[in-house]
Design a protein around this nucleic acid. Structure first.
Lengths: 362, 362
DNA sequence: CTGAAAGCGCTAACAT
DNA sequence: ATGTTAGCGCTTTCAG
């Protein structure tokens, strides 16, 4: 049977029980009910008997406090925003998944907003999130300036994940791309000292810089002097990978001997080109930043760098939680999470072991 | 003990402008300001001059109405919930992406909640969403009973996406898996009439039923009588694909001649097994429900069925919007979206063309 | 044409 | 030990 609330029209929320209802049914005031339901019954010395009565009634009626009323009252929404470029990119989906679960466990909802790698759209969605009074923000930003975020950070904590925004000093969790890339490139360059190409995305983004830096470092360690024409940078869309590959193959009249793509999306573009031009697969050694399970089944052996999503997500989670609770950050504001290299070329693997014992610093 | 600022202090929201502030600055009442800011100025014949003044001030101060206050007042949150098993599965990420963009364009936020394919967790997250007063729900459910959802649907519209929950009569948008699977299997069975294996996930889920039904239909059209040992069903986790493959290969002492996996995750498991047991790749013809770009670059040619994410998302969006606006649904409550088969075996492609003209019904 | 006031559901300071 | 009350920010009658 339907029990209709007394006050007002109930057209919109046929079976929503409010704290007033509970209080009324229990024969107490809203305040008492509120205290008990928030576990402050003992603190305020509400009699055991009353507490039980209230809790029972709430239970029976499946009482659920209204989120918006609470949020309005306390100006905390128990919601955080996650801004990322594309949900369909495995890297971002993985991070989102880990974060979703971490935050859910502590009663915080995460709202995911996609920027489509577009700074303007990013502005729009961030605005949207702020309007919803998110209590914190984790951003995988497509911006090169942190002006907006610095301002935001003064009243809503912001954590940068995966990418540094310009030279922002906001807390930052990212993969130590430089180290991993350098190691990988050193091994590549040792095998192909006369030709190691590099395809990158937006040069302005920090990950791009780090990966390029790692590339340079790797060449240097292998005593290979870089050539300008080896390095191409566009953006991270896969068609750029396709285009750069086409360009280079046309220039050379063959495929490059060794090629490192700075992201999985670029690799996909390259693979698409290779699929359409199978003869170019000859004598090509591929390597890439970012890993994917399916690479294990590819005809081409592709060495890859696997980011540690679990650690990245966990550190971002911890940092944001600390900030939201006004605790000082226990960890440094910039954290570099090491990545793992998945060697798929036997020769690469062999060399990597040699280098690890002989040559590689650290 | 937490110390909360006294009322009126703006410690927490240093630069939040309320409608009262705007009203005060403009020398009008809250009511007038509200009307104007909601575009009802003309309707209520507020003088042009006042309107301009209010709008200008709001603009200057970057006035943003409080989301939660609005939601509380109107009991509409302009938020919908999307429940899905795993964000990291390409299918679900694709749907989420499309939906996110569709809803954002009409000012509705979507909150993604993952059930991890676990009915109990699904219950928890749905509860969470309801507590936030979502205005609607799109569910890719892991449940086999729609009891809970039918109840929910009486006050918050629910749309089923991709999977039917039991025999629920709630609006349902899904891929026409039966038709596509039947076509694919018919082609497979024509090539390998003596052996066409089927690996499926949870038998209770509708997609499983449809795919299996398509399998049976395809065999029948190819005049192949099914054998019980060809059909294996576990769940959709990739390790199940691995396990079933291991089992079958052990039984046969070789790989099956033709194998259809009912999902991408299962295919991944199979591929993992093949990677560890390369000799089993011999004489194996693989096909799968669900598609992925990388399949184009696999050493094994794998025929696959590609769902139309854009159409699925759009139809779910339209259905939910209609329901939320209390419009009668213009489209039927159950919509089957056709899928496309991506033939990667030349022989399959050839046969499919033949069959399309000669044999296939419809 | 505009303002006053009520109230969405909740919490916490202040009274009993 | 419990109740009263005052808002959080907003919208919407209803009176001027």
């Amino acid at each position: 049977m339907k029990k209709l609330p007394v006050t007002g029209s109930d057209v919109k929320q046929p079976n929503r029980i409010t704290i007033s209802n509970i209080a009324e049914l229990a024969g107490v005031s809203k305040a008492t009910a509120s205290l008990v339901l928030n576990g402050k019954g003992d603190e305020y010395r509400v009699s055991e008997e009353t507490q039980q009565r209230i809790l029972l009634i709430a239970e029976e009626h499946r009482y659920q406090p209204s989120f918006h009323a609470r949020a309005l009252r306390s100006s905390r929404s128990h919601t955080i925003g996650l801004v990322l470029p594309f949900l369909t990119q495995f890297t971002h989906a993985s991070l989102a998944r880990e974060l979703e679960s971490l935050f859910r466990n502590v009663g915080i909802q995460i709202i995911i907003a996609c920027s489509d790698e577009d700074p303007e759209q990013e502005r729009v969605v961030v605005n949207n999130l702020l309007q919803r009074q998110v209590d914190g923000l984790i951003v995988i930003s497509s911006n090169t300036s942190d002006e907006a975020y610095s301002k935001i950070h003064s009243y809503v904590p912001v954590v940068q994940l995966g990418r540094q925004i310009g030279d922002s000093s906001l807390p930052l969790i990212m993969t130590d791309a430089t180290a991993a890339t350098a190691n990988l490139i050193q091994v590549l360059a040792t095998q192909y000292p006369d030709e190691v190409y590099y395809f990158g995305g937006e040069p302005g983004l920090t990950p791009s810089k780090q990966r390029l830096e790692g590339y340079a470092l790797g060449l240097q360690r292998a005593n290979v002097s870089p050539r300008a024409e080896w390095i191409r940078q566009r953006n991270y869309f896969s068609y750029s990978g396709y285009d750069m590959m086409e360009e280079v193959c046309n220039e050379l009249g063959r495929s490059p001997k060794a090629l490192f793509t700075a992201s999985f999306s670029l690799l996909e573009g390259v693979l698409q080109y290779l699929n359409q031009n199978p003869q170019m697969q000859q004598g090509l050694h591929l390597a890439s930043f970012d890993d994917h399970e399916l690479l294990d089944f590819m005809p081409l052996r592709i060495d890859s760098i696997a980011q540690d999503y679990t650690a990245l997500a966990f550190n971002a989670f911890s940092a944001l939680m600390a900030l939201m609770e006004d605790k000082p950050l226990s960890a440094p504001v910039t954290q570099n999470i090491p990545a793992r290299i998945r060697w798929r070329h036997p020769e690469s693997r062999r060399l990597s072991k040699l280098l690890a014992t002989d040559l590689l610093p650290q």
